[in-house]
Structures are given as C-alpha cells and as structure tokens.
Design a protein around this nucleic acid. Structure first.
Lengths: 130, 130
DNA sequence: AAATCATGTAAGAAAATCTAACATGAGATC
DNA sequence: GATCTCATGTTAGATTTTCTTACATGATTT
C-alpha cells in the first residue's frame, strides 16, 4: 500500500465531520452502514471513525441515489466491484514472478515499518499517516 | 491553492484524533495553542478542529522539543518562516507579469468554484476536499 | 531560594455521539 | 384503495468527548 493509500484509509473522522463533508444526515450515514455499504471503524469509546475512502464511498452512494438507484442496486454495484477487484488480484498473482513478489513484499515492509522515513528539514517531521 | 493544499488545510480532525496521530496529550496540544504555535479552527460547538497541516506542525514542534529547543525558540523559528514566506511572496509579485496574474487568478477561480470537476465513473464522485 | 517552564490532573459543564424506538411520506404491491 | 416497504426524520436517555479553569509538580533558570 502506498503512503497515499494508507492516508486515505486511516480512520480519523468522526461522524459530525463526515456529515459536513458529505452533506448527509447522521441518520442516513448510519442507515447506509446498516445496509452494509460503509462500515466505519470504531474508537475505544465506540464512536464511529471514518476514512477518506469512506467519504468517497458515501458521496458515490449519494450520487447513485440521486440517479434513482435504490439500496439494493447500490449493493449490487459494490458486490460487482468486489468481484472485479478479486479477479484482478488473481490475474496479478498469476502474472507475477517470484522476484516480483519478493520486491513488492520488501517495499511493503519498508513502508509499514517506517524504516524508509526520510527527514525533510533536519530531523523534523514524521508523518503519522505514513 | 491546489486541490491537495485545500485538502491539507481543511479542519476536520477533533483533538482526540490529533492526540493519536501525534502521540501528544490534549494538555500539550492546548498548551502549544496557548503559545500561539498551532491555532485550530473551532466548530459551532466550540470544539477544536485540526487540519493535516496542523498535524504536521505539531509533529515538528515535538521534534524541536526533542532537540532541546524551548517554546521561545520554536516561536522564533516560525516567525522566521513567516518572514521568509512573506519575502518570497513579495518577490513573486515583483516578478509576475499581468498575464501571469490573470492566468493564476483564472486557475484559482476554476478550482474554488469547482467548475473543473471531472466525473470519474459516470457522474459519480464529487470530492468534498476539492 | 524563588520564579518560570512544560506538563499532569481534577472537576463540572457543554457538546457530540450512541442505540433503540416510533413516525412518516412516497412508491410498490396486492 | 388498503397495505407494505423503503429511506429518512425525530425523540429520549445513556455514554463519551471536549471544554475551561484551577491547582500541582518536577526540571530548569535566575
């Protein structure tokens, strides 16, 4: 996962922020969750915490609804997405050589462990999203 | 301002999230605010709301403190930053031709108004950070 | 020794969020 | 046209988060 992807998938936004960013009501956001469309992480106090990816998906849902598509339709669309993603993944795996895999795993490791952190100005600035 | 910059300056994070992201206590974060180093926006309910830029600055402050620099020193550093930024801005203005300015203003307008929004898949996806 | 700095801690109030339940208007279905 | 279902609104009471203010404290500075 790239740095940017990690950032986008980090659950940092409470529902109040999500409401403003998406212009949805709390009721709507929770209902879409109930329908299995956007399942946020929870913090220690059981409050929902959303990522930027979650925001994107909520906005997509909004648009689909505007287009007259109902919950069932939207669910179907996302299931389709997932099937496609799964297929791509299998295809990838089939194509990758062993050395490719080693290189990728190495890159992942360097990222996740933060060992490749490069100082910006002197020593200052480690980004928490990385 | 670019899309990315807008995103980074949008105040969307409550102090609890900032605590986790920076590994600072609420007391520390509020104290740095008291010292004029990071002044978050407030929401309607008077809760502090932070941007990604705020996070970066808090992490910088952490590093400066680790380096043994005290509040006064850090303040001085940021005042220096501001003076330099101001100088660059003046320099820019001096160099820009009228047509440059017109082009830049045009770009800004297109960005802020969101008129350049390009649909991703069909009509779906307007990003709130843009 | 006294003052200052950076942070901890506690108390009480206000705001945000949670779950659960009932309400409702618009369409679909019988 | 009565009934159902869907997507959302609303309310209530509990819990969590955040706020401000104040006092406490160990480490430096004066």
């Amino acid at each position: 996962m790239t740095e940017k992807e990690l950032q986008r998938s980090k659950s940092v936004l409470p529902i109040g922020t999500v409401m403003k960013l998406t212009d949805l009501t709390a009721r709507q956001i929770r209902y879409y969750e109930e329908q299995g469309l956007v399942i946020p992480k929870r913090n220690e106090g059981n409050r929902r915490m959303y990522s930027l990816n979650d925001i994107d998906r909520l906005l997509e849902i909004k648009d689909y609804l505007t287009d007259g598509i109902n919950m069932a339709g939207i669910k179907a669309i996302y299931e389709q997405h997932e099937r496609e993603a799964e297929a791509r993944k299998r295809e990838m795996n089939a194509r990758l050589t062993d050395s490719d895999v080693r290189r990728i795993l190495h890159d992942e490791f360097m990222n996740v462990s933060g060992l490749n952190r490069k100082p910006e100005q002197g020593l200052h600035s480690q980004h928490p999203f990385v």
